[in-house]
Amino acid sequence: MTVEKILELKNLQVSFETFGGEVQAVRGVDLTLHKGETLAIVGESGSGKSVTSKAIMGLIESPPGRIKNGEILFEGNNLLKYSKHQIQKVRGKDISMIFQDPMTALNPTMKIGSQIMEGLIKHQEISKHDARKRAIELLALVGIPNPDKRVDEFPHQFSGGMRQRVVIAIALACNPKILIADEPTTALDVTIQAQILDLMRDIQEKMGTSIILITHDLGVVANLAQRVAVMYGGKIIETGTLDEIFYKPKHPYTWGLLSSMPKLHAKTDKLLAIPGTPPDLRKPPKGCPFAPRCPYAMDVCIDHMPQYTASSGSQKTACWLLDERAPKVDPPSTIGVGGEA
């Protein structure tokens, strides 16, 4: 691909000091985000998705958090080398974030207009009057009716879906180049979820924002993303285009994820959850983190972390099954994607 890279993570490692010892939440993540694309990061709870996104925003609280290693290159500049002051100038202006729970993401005692205007005033040095006008425009853009009245209202006067629109308006205020959405629809009703996803797709078309979308919901991924990174145990175990991950997945964990996805035309309603639990990141395994749960695990998996094997220009998988010496294994039939993709 010749598309310009806007963000690149190289060997990112993030740990937390806790009473129980060091939690290695992110253990060497490589990730590339291209201009104008939507990259989905999927994976079970605790796999390190939120920590990765917080690290990009410079929002890892230290202590207890610590970025042990790696680079976060935004347009070629390593954000990890930035001073606090410099990173504050990037946040909200070049890179913004949408949070999971719209019920708690807004300041309850501040008018939503002011909450949108803050970033504008800080980054674009415009007058209060102009900022307010822009706030009203933004509310209209995210589909809030009567925006000129509602700018002066408080969060508790909005429903959950409407609040998430406000959160999106805040994130979009300064036309960021990158938008990180950490489970933007998990806390919402199904019908509202679809509306918010539509809105995000709309915005991307209009503004050309690059989006990192974090979710456990493969349905959301299919809807919005062009590329997918699958995370497990603090590592990215497979990346590829949407089609590659959905139709030609190579990693047993990705197979498991796809099997556990509800199917539109499934014969049974039963979800095939992956048995077992994710690894304890206080004592991360030496080898493949998925080995204890992997039906195909071999001796080598337990002691040696598999390297990435590229199966195309865009798909990379970290699994010993792709080694020439390994036995050939076919993916299970349960991974078929229901409905159209």
């Binding site: 925003m57 929002l59 606090k84 002051h85 504050q88 100038k89 990037v90 946040r91 909200g92 202006k93 913004s96 974030m97 949070f99 729970d101 708690t104 993401a105 807004l106 300041n107 309850p108 005692t109 501040m110 909450q115 803050e118 970033g119 800080k122 980054h123 959160v167 805040i170 994130a171 205020a173």
Partner: peptide
Amino acid sequence: QSDYITTAEAKGLTTMQVIFKHSIRN
């Protein structure tokens, strides 16, 4: 520790702005 403080930080506000405009009043 609340989420809206993270939102405020994510906007790029300085620590002082976060404390004075978002924390103390609440």
